[in-house]
């Protein structure tokens, strides 16, 4: 039996949203908060799961996951996978998530040389050698954008993306439209 088809609006249900910062600078989250008073409107429409704003430690089933930052260490990979597993829609937010960004500028250097330089050669920072505490996540040989590890549904470029662009993405998604950015909202810098 087919469900009756009509174009009546779907009963407004709050969208569950999770956000996180991997190898990023929190710049994108700051930009998110820059949507200012619109955040109040947003809170009528969405409910936050794991996010630096909520302090929830693990991501539960969500409609939307926003990822800031690329993958710099093993911990980033675990968190990203947790998000992908739980979020119906995953968005890469900002230059770092999309192409590795500033952290990826280390990629033409050998990680071993970097570790040596930072922890052994460079005077004054640490005389204890390279930290090997199992609690600390190990760095990856190179920094990677998140689409190299999980499927990403949408990308929101910018470093950081302008608040208006974030707002546009969210309102488009809430309205069930494919998100688009017009001139002025699309920035790689």
């Amino acid at each position: 039996m087919n469900a009756p088809m009509n174009a009546a609006p779907v009963a407004a249900k709050k969208l569950k949203v999770a956000t996180t910062s991997l190898a990023g600078c929190f710049g994108c989250h700051m930009s998110f908060l820059d949507i200012d008073e619109r955040i109040l409107k947003l809170l009528e429409l969405v409910e936050f799961d794991r996010s630096p704003i909520t302090d929830i430690k693990h991501c539960g089933p969500c409609d939307l996951g926003l990822i800031e930052g690329g993958l710099c260490n093993a911990e980033n990979v675990h968190v990203l996978r947790e998000f992908r597993k739980n979020c119906k829609i995953l968005v890469a937010v900002g230059a770092c998530a999309i192409n590795g960004g500033l952290p990826a500028q280390r990629n033409h250097l050998d990680l071993r040389d970097i570790l040596e330089e930072v922890y052994q050669t460079e005077a004054g920072i640490s005389h204890g050698g390279i930290p090997n505490d199992p609690e600390l996540p190990l760095p990856l040989n190179q920094v990677h954008p998140i689409h190299e590890v999980v499927k990403v549904d949408y990308f929101l470029p910018g470093c950081p993306p302008p608040a208006d662009a974030i707002w546009k993405l969210l309102t488009d998604l809430l309205a069930g439209r494919t998100p688009t950015l017009g001139h002025g909202l699309m920035h790689y810098d």
């Binding site: 093993a74 990680l111 190990l138 040989n141 990677h144 190299e148």
Partner: peptide, 30 residues
Amino acid sequence: PAFDLDAALSQARQMTGRDDAAAHLTNEAE
């Protein structure tokens, strides 16, 4: 993934001498 995730930790393992479970990544999402 585009690359071998566990192998991507190889240099850090070499430099820290670690080989505990957290020093590895599975290539399949758990």
